[in-house]
Nucleic acid binder design. Structure first.
Length: 552
RNA sequence: GGUCCCUUCGUCUAAUGGUUAGGACACCACCCUUUCACGGUGGUAAUAUGGGUUCGAAUCCCGUAGGGAUCACCA
């Protein structure tokens, strides 16, 4: 075909499309001095933990460089679309404190000069650029079979792999003559638009990825589809066109994209666009229980893939973000230790500090971060957060928390506020069980394990303690009293006990342990004096007597 | 199967040819203590493997093994 033929073909395929110059003029280059990043959720489910991970990078990179972070909805896969999912994804970003500056803001709203930010509303733009490509002889229509379902594709792929290792072949339709194309169009046949690849897989060129570093990249040689036969573009075209028009400077995305990078580069060059910077991130993984191998977090197998899992459990959103930051820039935790009260946004995040290997999701580490964050809350903040959590996720807890404000705040206040606050709350769904002893209808459940303690003496001690129990003025007096009563029943201080354990009924630790067990039903609790004061004499005596009954 | 990427304590990672291979979480011990915690001190624990280059290798090169990803009119 001649250059003239290409122009004729372009007009034939896209008679109504605008000239690309129109759009290139309409969307002015940005004057932001920093990096422009974007998150591009597809409305195919809910916000995935991996997308949240990406969003942290986008938000931090934009903030640290004085740039812009925007949101674009990639709804070109009509088959997989789930209703409301775009809205939910956006809402989740906002809740996690990663609100985009611009773009898609839910189903009825968008902000910014570079819209529309929903791809299904940009079809005419894609057509304009498709037409330009045809004019330049860099794309051609393909009249072969249309879309298949996933099972068919997987089956066909397997068959193809058996036949040949190299399925990167040029598409036969690239050789159709103008006359043949005209005949197909006249017959009413639908077409997909394919890239007419000029690459050669044996040639490589140097490429620098902002995370992976210097790499040799093979040229693309595949005539990939750019626009499906239903007129909707695939990711490659949408990415190159949108990110160019919207002024994205750095494409941050998962490393599964790394191998399609050559197509994106070829396409971008075919248009004569300025190349993007790219950063391909690792993927958060877990160990698969069946195979014992690492695998990407899966929406179907891992309930925490959906970020709402963490909200439902009552993790503070900052705990998730700080955990992710810790995976991304491992010096974050050092910074956090030195700056315990600064917001994480002050941290000097750097994209090139991101590692290249896939990290494993570690709940132990997340829990530690979460505990530390909650330990810095005031008692009122703990209460408010717990109440808000319960209001959304747990009706029963909500009623309990609402009706027991005074006691809960008192118990949250113990060991809180100093330099070394107590770290015992991991997430808000634990509150009603962790502090059940200050709530109504408390029924302690524990296994009574006496260890080396003399049962008869213990019973005598507890009876004496219960019968003569009086509220004390302060913690010191309270403990002196406990020590004295216990001492009367052969419970001695720890040093004395150590010298000859068999001579005594037990030590002061034992005595306290069983009082604690009677009062709280647990071996761990905040400082007992305060708890007993909150509960009042009658309740304490009753609980002590309940334990004594069990000691028969 | 082809291609691409990766491999340092159990986990997250630091160490840009010279460190006693460092830190954090988890685990254990001890200390503190007025009980539970918090905290403190210490401990167990790693350069996948075989060659090569080098005075010297976790670091550079080659092979091997293992793992991940990709090979759609999905993103």
């Amino acid at each position: 075909m001649t250059e003239k033929d290409y122009v004729e073909l372009a007009n034939l395929l896209y008679p109504d499309a605008q000239d690309t110059a129109f759009y290139l003029k309409k969307y002015k280059p940005r004057n932001a001095k920093g990096e422009v990043t974007r998150i591009a959720p597809s409305p195919t489910g809910y916000l995935h933990i991996g997308q949240l991970y990406q969003a942290v990078i986008h938000r931090m990179v934009a903030d640290k460089t004085g740039g812009i972070f925007y949101c674009r909805l990639e709804d070109t896969d009509t088959k997989r679309e789930v209703e409301n999912a775009g809205q939910i994804a956006y809402d989740m970003l906002v809740r996690f404190g990663l609100k985009p500056d611009e773009g898609y803001c839910g189903d009825r709203r968008e902000i910014g000069e570079y819209g529309p930010y929903v791809q299904s509303k940009r079809i005419e733009i894609y057509n304009a650029f498709a037409k330009e490509l045809v004019k330049r002889g860099k794309a051609f229509p393909c009249f072969c079979a249309g879309s298949e379902n996933k099972e068919e594709i997987l089956k066909r792929r397997e068959e193809e792999l058996e036949e040949s290792n190299d399925i990167e072949v040029k598409d036969p339709c690239r050789n159709l003559t103008l006359e043949q194309i005209k005949a197909n169009l006249k017959a009413g046949k639908k077409f997909a638009l394919r890239l007419k690849s000029e690459g050669n897989v044996t040639k490589t060129h140097e490429f620098v990825d902002r995370i992976k570093g210097k790499k040799d990249l093979r040229e693309n040689a595949k005539d990939d589809v750019l626009i499906k036969s239903n007129g909707v573009p695939v990711y490659a075209l949408a990415h190159v066109v949108d990110d160019t028009l919207m002024g994205t400077t750095t494409i941050v995305r998962g490393q599964e994209w790394f191998q399609s990078l050559p197509v994106h580069i070829e396409l971008s060059r075919a248009f004569g666009f300025k190349p993007f910077k790219y950063a391909h991130t690792p993927n958060i993984c877990v160990i698969d229980e069946k195979t014992g191998n690492k695998r990407k977090i899966s929406k179907r197998k891992d309930p925490f893939a959906d970020v709402r899992f963490f909200l439902k459990q009552g993790y503070p959103t900052t705990a998730i973000i700080e955990y992710i930051l810790n995976l991304l820039n491992s010096d974050f935790e050092v910074w956090r230790k030195n700056n315990p009260t600064l917001p994480y946004t002050e941290f000097q995040f750097a994209i090139n500090k991101i590692g290249v290997t896939n990290p494993m999701f570690d709940f132990a580490k997340l829990n530690d971060i979460s505990k530390t964050i909650i330990s810095r809350y005031t008692a009122e903040q703990v209460y408010t957060n717990a109440l808000n959590w319960a209001k959304e996720w747990n009706e029963k807890d909500y009623e309990i928390i609402k009706q027991n404000k005074a006691n809960l705040i008192k118990v949250f206040s113990i060991d809180r506020g100093g330099d070394r606050p107590r770290k015992d709350i991991t997430k808000f769904d634990e509150i009603t069980t962790l502090y059940n002893y200050v709530l109504p209808n408390f029924k302690p459940k524990f296994n009574l394990n006496l260890g080396n303690v003399n049962k008869q003496k213990l019973k005598e001690f507890l009876t004496d303690y219960a019968n003569n129990y009086a509220q004390q003025a302060d913690n010191q007096a309270w403990f002196e009293n406990l020590k004295q009563v216990a001492g009367n029943h052969n419970f001695v201080d720890n040093k004395t006990y150590k010298q000859n354990p068999s001579a005594y009924a037990g030590n002061i630790t034992d005595a306290s342990k069983f009082v604690r067990l009677a009062i709280t039903g647990a071996e761990n609790s905040p400082e007992l004096y305060s708890i007993m004061k909150i509960l009042g004499k009658a309740t304490c005596v009753e609980r002590l007597n309940n334990l004594i009954k069990k000691l028969k």
